Simulated scan of single mutants.
Amino acid sequence: MALVPMTLRGAQKLREELEELKTNQRPRIIKAIAEAREHGDLKENAEYHAAREQQGFCEGRIQEIESKLSNAQVIDVTKLKNDGKVVFGTTVTILNLDTEEEQKYQLVGDDEADIKVGRISINSPIARGLVGKYEGDEVSIQTPGGKVDFEILKVDYLAD
């Protein structure tokens, strides 16, 4: 499996979730299963079946996170040479040349993307159109709404 780029913040959030699942959720679910078993007949025991279902979700998520972390290529952009080039993890301020609207995005991995806080996936059309370009460049990017022209105003290599 290929390495998946991830920011320091993204890797830390996954580690925290994994810790929560293993130290709190898993033991709570195991206890709930044990308590439900004490109620007798398992075939018609809704609490038992609900707890088993929760256990399945929990174990599945633990495996998913462990897999993601084992295949993660954690990138700390603050350790990269800031030459104004747009790369994974950088925070880019762009100007829409048609609307004069300024936007600021951090280019992150798929799991970390959250447009509400300005984090876009490295695989999004805008990110793909910006990667490899430099501060001051003008780029034309095919978006779902059509072709849009942007100017790259600033490229920051900031900590998350």
Rank of each mutant, 00 (worst) to 15 (best):
A2Y: 07
P5S: 05
T7P: 02
T7E: 02
T7W: 02
T7N: 03
L8T: 14
G10T: 01
Q12L: 12
K13F: 02
K13I: 07
K13W: 01
L14A: 04
E16T: 05
L18E: 11
L18R: 07
E19I: 12
E20S: 05
E20I: 02
L21V: 10
K22P: 08
K22W: 11
K22Y: 11
T23W: 00
Q25E: 02
Q25S: 12
Q25R: 06
R26K: 09
I29Q: 15
I29E: 15
I30W: 10
K31W: 11
A32F: 13
A34C: 04
E35S: 14
E35C: 12
R37W: 09
R37I: 09
E38T: 00
H39E: 12
G40W: 02
L42W: 00
K43Y: 07
N45E: 10
A46Y: 15
Y48K: 03
Y48S: 06
A51H: 10
E53S: 15
Q55A: 14
G56E: 13
E59C: 01
G60Q: 01
G60K: 01
R61W: 02
Q63V: 04
E64I: 00
E66I: 05
E66A: 08
S67K: 14
S67Q: 14
S70N: 03
N71T: 09
N71M: 11
A72M: 00
V74Q: 03
V74I: 12
I75S: 01
D76I: 07
D76R: 05
T78P: 08
K81D: 06
K81H: 11
N82F: 14
N82K: 13
D83R: 03
G84T: 08
K85F: 09
V86D: 07
V87D: 14
F88W: 04
G89I: 07
T90M: 09
T91A: 07
V92Y: 08
I94N: 05
L95K: 15
N96P: 08
N96L: 07
N96Q: 03
L97W: 13
L97D: 10
T99K: 14
E100R: 01
E101L: 01
Q103G: 00
Q103M: 00
Y105C: 00
Y105N: 00
L107S: 04
V108I: 04
G109A: 15
D110W: 01
D111P: 13
D111E: 15
A113F: 09
A113E: 14
D114K: 10
V117W: 11
V117Y: 10
G118T: 08
G118I: 08
S124D: 12
P125G: 05
I126R: 06
A127F: 09
L130T: 04
V131Y: 01
G132W: 06
G132M: 05
K133Y: 02
K133P: 03
E135G: 04
G136F: 04
G136Q: 06
D137Y: 09
V139Q: 02
S140M: 07
S140A: 10
S140P: 03
I141T: 06
Q142V: 13
P144I: 07
K147R: 13
K147E: 13
D149Y: 01
D149N: 10
F150P: 03
E151C: 09
E151N: 13
E151D: 10
I152Q: 04
L153S: 04
L153A: 06
K154Q: 09
V155E: 09
V155D: 08
Y157A: 05
Y157D: 04
A159F: 01
